[in-house]
Design a binder for these strands. Structure first.
Lengths: 240, 240
DNA sequence: AGGTGTACTATTGGATACAATATCGCTGTC
DNA sequence: GACAGCGATATTGTATCCAATAGTACACCT
């Protein structure tokens, strides 16, 4: 669960707000703070042994980024953990696909030698993913981790503050859904490695267009697969 | 300058932080607070007649969104107005293209009647744009406004919190650059209306793929044109 | 018994107070 | 005259305090 993407997170002011933000976000992503749970400043403050001030800042940020929803009543605002909805999930998957699409386009325009190296490493990561996917008994965390590592590999090649900043805010939201729905379980994840291979091929050949399309298709398919899982869980089938 | 996109902006807590955010952002976008200028909490607080608390919250947000940059010294963080760079501009234009691409894809999947209606209105807005562009003497603000109105028209059709929220944070950053460089001056804006027409056609015919490509091409071209303007201003030519 | 008004409580929004520290300038010495 | 040390200043980071208010519960009145 060591993700580059979540790591440095230069927090605005002191360290406390940033820490509070990360800890709270982690609690939300992991479902430890369930959707609908109220986020009370004072309560959180005492729980973490800090004053309300840093908590306030963290909550405001979580609110802006969509982890918390505001129940506006009169002049005040109660913050609750935002609900998970299929609609938002669809949106998040499309956005993450678009963002990774921009990144892979960039990566596909690097020099040939560099691209070959990246492709090689991506293949290793993809092999690792297939291995842990095929392992019996399968460790869900390992699969999750391997998935992340693959995507991180090419994300880390990109360096533009705008896209990375957006990615860093969107990606954890995706993870929240993946956690909530134990995503990509069973046979659903098998096609993933194959899609990864298409991405790798496109990167190796420097075909930015194809790479982008492959990444977006990958996320679109992942959405379909995860939706299927959710439908099965909820018992009500739903077209993607 | 009445932009739907900037309007409601549900602010986290009270009203002051939201107001401070908007006012400060506007000052930055319009260049009234020039790049590199320090943002001192207390100073801003007295200037607007509020305490440091709401200012802090506004500054933190502006920082996260990239309007302010942190000069980290030791344990403190000095915030300065973020510099404008060509690299960031390229990134912003690509991101806004991607986001509007997602939106137009959605719009292109609406019902035929609805699409026709939207296309009709977009054509009117585009005609208006051509009129104010051709007017002599030309009013730069009118052109700016007409451009915005066109894009807003189809953005307003979309309703998904994720994409809209990202759009609302990215779009003003684009405006900051446009303001700084008096973008799309002179002949550079002539092709814009033609590109808009391609977008309209694609929407009318419900071709989501083509619509998206047209929007992205539009922003890519706008980047080229604006880069050209900047190169001319700075005197150092630069390939897009 | 039911409805209504009122006092209380919980919680937010904003302001202020306090502590830490980096920066700047001054002074004194070599 | 330059440099080192030290004190003053500016500014941030955190905690606390106060005011406003929505929700709640209880009691009282009809």
């Amino acid at each position: 669960m060591t993700q580059l993407v979540n790591m440095p997170l230069p927090s605005a002011h002191g360290e406390l707000p940033g820490q509070m933000y990360e800890r709270l976000r982690e609690l939300i992503i992991r479902g430890r703070l369930p959707a609908g749970a109220r986020a009370v400043e004072a309560e959180i403050a005492v729980r973490f042994g800090v004053s309300r001030t840093p908590v306030r800042e963290a909550l405001a940020r979580l609110h802006h980024e969509g982890y918390l929803a505001a129940k506006n009543l009169g002049r005040r605002t109660q913050l609750i953990v935002a609900p998970l909805t299929i609609e938002q999930m669809r949106e998040l998957w499309r956005v993450i696909g678009a963002l990774e699409g921009l990144v892979i386009e960039f990566v596909s325009c690097l020099g040939a030698a560099r691209r070959r190296q990246i492709a090689r490493e991506l293949e290793e990561l993809n092999d690792a993913l297939e291995r842990v996917s095929a392992a019996r008994p399968r460790n869900a965390d390992d699969v999750f981790d391997a998935q992340i590592k693959f995507h991180e590999r090419f994300i880390s090649e990109y360096d533009g503050p705008v896209v990375l900043s957006l990615y860093r805010t969107v990606r954890p939201q995706v993870e929240r859904y993946e956690w909530a729905y134990g995503a990509e379980s069973e046979a659903e994840l098998a096609p993933s490695a194959g899609e990864h291979r298409k991405i790798i091929d496109a990167v190796r050949s420097g075909d930015a267009h194809r790479a982008r399309a492959a990444v977006e298709a990958h996320w679109a398919n992942a959405l379909t697969r995860t939706s299927a899982v959710i439908s099965r869980i909820l018992g009500k089938p739903r077209a993607p």
